[in-house]
Design a binder for these strands. Structure first.
Length: 422
RNA sequence: GUGGCUGUAGCUCAAUGGCAGAGCUCCGCACUGUGGAUGCGGCGGUUGAGGGUUCGACCCCCUUCAGCCACCCCA
């Protein structure tokens, strides 16, 4: 045990039961994306560091990327996010693509961070973007995709909520409070921290930024104003659209949603557990110009990303994960003795040719051991071929769950088993 | 990058500074063509790693690694 080389910090081993969950999640994401007419795409897992230099938050690249030098001396990064890659891919074909484009992806990402709950160094992320449109209804569509996904996997509006705000509205508020644009990032951070700090600590934070008493009070009352969204045309449209479509229950206005990434320019949103337990499940928003930094023509859009780590935590918490069969085989063929080994192998082959997932025991051992093995790995059905069965041109077909068994004619075996499995 | 908690058998956990244990799992047998039960037996450990204090360390100290949690940031 001591000699086993440990896995890389922050990575996860996907044992079959974990892989089943990951695959299931991918299926859900795929079905939701495609029912909205989005096309799947994928980029490289490694990129030149330059791609990220201009974009993203600086910290994301400078401090959280896995960077190495290749043999040619270029600095290469394991991708910490997909948006810059998407921007490049779009920019390269900007002249030939018909907009709006609807794209989605599900793949691995790496960030060199300290692992904790809901956060690993290697994780999977669902990215979905609607490109080349500036309308608030587009923003509403992406939020609908979120809600649709939650609904599909069985997370109710009593369990998760999508919190929505508008960067544009917040900009306007800051202007009205006469807060200088240079302070904008700091104020956004201040807003972001309100929940995490005690009231007095939060006040200290504000004082340190140089907010006047008047500005501080103004900001505070704005953040408590649940009706503030009515001042934003975009937000009004978003909420109206969602109510029309019927997913309004999932959505709630929250003036404290800001989002860290600075390329968001309009609607921003993130989904969280209703009691705000843990980190957000997904986050996204409207960006004014996706491809500007990689040399394309200005192109707006809206999109979000969902990480698999937090998604699994929430799905587990609310019991939304289906029961996955412990074995992927439906039938196990036992081996009676050396003389009948070939008969078992042939029967197994016959079943496989008919598309039935079949395991054949590969050694001659005590029957009890084979039966126990079948039971332990969770195969539902057993085929027994002994001298009696061979003589009668039959097999014994045993249902391990019901503990019943019957004899099947060899000629009818495949047909009957297929019926049972249907 | 900062701080806190935790590392003992495959798993869950015990052991006042004094012989490293239990339950579960696993394997074997009782059981020569029928599993989960029961009984009996067995395998299993450099106590995460390295150093120090001590007659003696799972226990105290230092270092390091890993996991978890929070900050930061974000999926």
């Amino acid at each position: 045990m001591n000699s086993i080389i440990s896995s890389v910090k922050g990575t996860r081993d996907f044992y079959p039961e974990d892989m089943a969950i990951r695959t299931w999640l991918y299926q859900m994401v795929k079905e939701v994306s495609e029912v909205f007419g989005y096309s799947e795409y994928e980029g490289p897992f490694i990129e030149k560091i330059d791609l990220y230099a201009a974009k993203s938050g600086e910290e994301l690249v400078k401090e959280q990327a896995f960077v190495f030098e290749d043999r040619g001396g270029d600095l290469i990064s394991l991708r910490p996010e997909l948006t810059p890659t998407l921007a490049r891919m779009i920019a390269q074909r900007q002249k030939q693509l018909v907009f709006p484009q609807r794209w989605w992806s599900f793949g691995p990402f790496w960030r060199y961070e300290r692992p904790q709950k809901g956060r690993t160094r290697e994780f999977f992320q669902w990215n979905i973007d609607l490109l080349g449109t500036d309308s608030a209804v587009s923003d509403a569509e992406l939020i609908t995709v979120c809600a649709y996904f939650f609904n599909k996997v069985g997370l109710s509006p009593d369990e998760v909520k999508i919190f929505v705000n508008s960067r544009k509205l917040m900009d306007q508020i800051l202007e009205e409070l006469s807060i200088s644009p240079e302070l904008k990032q700091d104020i956004f951070r201040l807003i972001d921290r309100k929940e995490k700090l005690s009231p007095s600590a939060w006040k200290d934070y504000a004082d340190n930024l140089g907010l006047s008493e008047q500005q501080f009070e103004g900001l505070k009352s704005v953040l408590n104003d649940k009706e503030l969204w009515k001042r934003s045309e975009d937000l009004v449209t978003v909420f109206e659209t969602l109510n029309t479509i019927g997913f309004g229950d999932y959505v709630v206005y929250d003036p404290q949603i800001i989002r860290g990434l600075d390329y968001y320019t309009g609607i921003v949103f993130e989904a969280k557990d209703i009691d705000k337990e843990g980190r957000s499940i997904l986050g996204g928003g409207h960006y004014g110009n996706l491809v500007g930094d990689v040399g394309g023509d200005p192109l707006p859009g809206v999109g979000f990303a969902m990480g698999d780590v937090m998604a699994r935590i929430i799905l587990e918490k609310y019991g939304c994960l289906p029961d996955f069969a412990s074995s992927t085989a439906d039938v196990l063929v036992t081996v009676f003795d050396e003389a009948l080994f070939n008969d078992s192998l042939k029967i197994a082959s016959e079943l496989r040719n008919a598309g039935i997932k079949t395991i054949c025991f590969t050694e001659v051992t005590k029957f009890q051991k084979q039966l126990k093995y079948a039971s332990r790995i969770g195969v539902p059905y057993l085929i027994i071929v002994g001298p009696d069965e061979k003589e009668a041109e039959e097999v014994t077909f045993k249902d391990l769950n019901n503990r019943t068994q019957e004899n099947l004619k060899r000629s009818e075996m495949v047909r009957i088993i297929k019926e049972k499995l249907a």
